[in-house]
Amino acid sequence: MEKSQIEFRNVSFRYHDDSPWVLKNVSFTIHSDEWLAIIGHNGSGKSTIAKLMNGLLFPQEGEIYVSGEKVVPETIWDVRKQVGMVFQNPDNQFVGTTVRDDVAFGMENHGLPREVMVERIQESLDAVGMQEYERQEPHRLSGGQKQRVAIASVLAVSPKYMIFDEATAMLDPKGRMEIMQTIRDLQSERSLSVVTITHDLREVTQADRVIVMNDGEVWMEGTPRDVFSKKNRLVEIGLDTPFVSKLAEEMKSAGLPLSREPLNHQELLEELWTLDSTR
């Protein structure tokens, strides 16, 4: 097994001994520098996967490895140095009275020297475009700004993996787009392995690979283009498809031959341009 990856091996989990299994024999690998999106409807098990990666929960069956190290209570602090997590509600992650204090908190817990902390605070806030808000009180920030600070707080401890668990669910469309752009930039600039957990298929087009969860099991796996091409199957398990995919399907039904499944508006326009130029 490669060291720079996360691996689930036949993982099953339930919250109580007499409750249904939330995850059932789940196996997959997250590779170094990969962006993996995990999607599914509410109750499909995707957020439980996020908590298992970070050691907030432990499986009843199976094994989880982070960079070759098994996730067990004895290794949990080493694992959490490598796996950073950004949750749906950033207010739940704030502990400091200022943005600066909040970004410093995780580094203090890891015992980093002050000079290192000062440098990383600046680097992390710069990375998410929040350097001007260093002395601001977190509760005075907008939803998108709060989420950026939450990301900076995780970045400051230099994780290998970053998990975004429904990180845009509470944001308006503009804030959602800004956070997704921030994630894209960070993933490319810092060579992070990124995991985005979501039920919104519009957010997965930038991912390298997609895992679709259904009823606690890995139901489908592939590139975003592969997954979006199976619209009818996604609808069967209660997942809506992006507007671009719906429009492309209508075009195909009308007899317009598309050469590929468009992932966004730009690709759809390119397909239309190609069709027009061949007529």
Score class of each variant (00 low, 15 high):
M1G: 14
E2P: 11
K3Y: 08
Q5D: 02
I6M: 05
E7Q: 15
F8P: 10
F8G: 04
K24H: 06
S27W: 04
S27E: 08
H31Y: 15
A37Y: 01
H41K: 15
N42T: 15
N42H: 10
G45S: 09
S47R: 03
M53R: 02
Q60K: 12
G62N: 07
E63C: 07
V66E: 00
S67T: 06
G68P: 00
G68L: 06
T75M: 01
V79W: 08
Q82R: 15
F87Y: 14
F87W: 10
D91Q: 13
F94K: 08
V95Q: 04
D101N: 12
D101Y: 02
A104S: 09
F105V: 00
F105D: 07
G106L: 05
L112S: 08
E119S: 11
L125H: 01
V128C: 05
V128L: 06
V128N: 06
E132V: 00
Y133E: 13
P138E: 00
Q147K: 13
S153C: 08
L155D: 14
K160Q: 10
K160E: 07
M162A: 02
I163T: 12
D172C: 00
K174C: 09
G175R: 01
E178I: 00
M180H: 06
M180E: 14
Q181P: 08
Q181W: 06
I183C: 05
I183L: 01
Q187M: 01
S188Y: 14
L192K: 02
V195N: 02
I197V: 10
H199P: 08
L201C: 01
E203F: 01
V204L: 04
R209H: 11
R209C: 06
V212W: 05
E221G: 12
T223N: 03
P224W: 02
F228K: 05
K231S: 14
K231N: 10
R233H: 13
V235L: 08
E236I: 01
E236W: 06
G238N: 08
D240S: 14
T241W: 14
E249T: 01
K252T: 00
G255W: 11
G255T: 13
S259G: 11
E261N: 13
N264Q: 08
E267T: 00
L272V: 12
L272D: 15
L275A: 07
R279M: 12
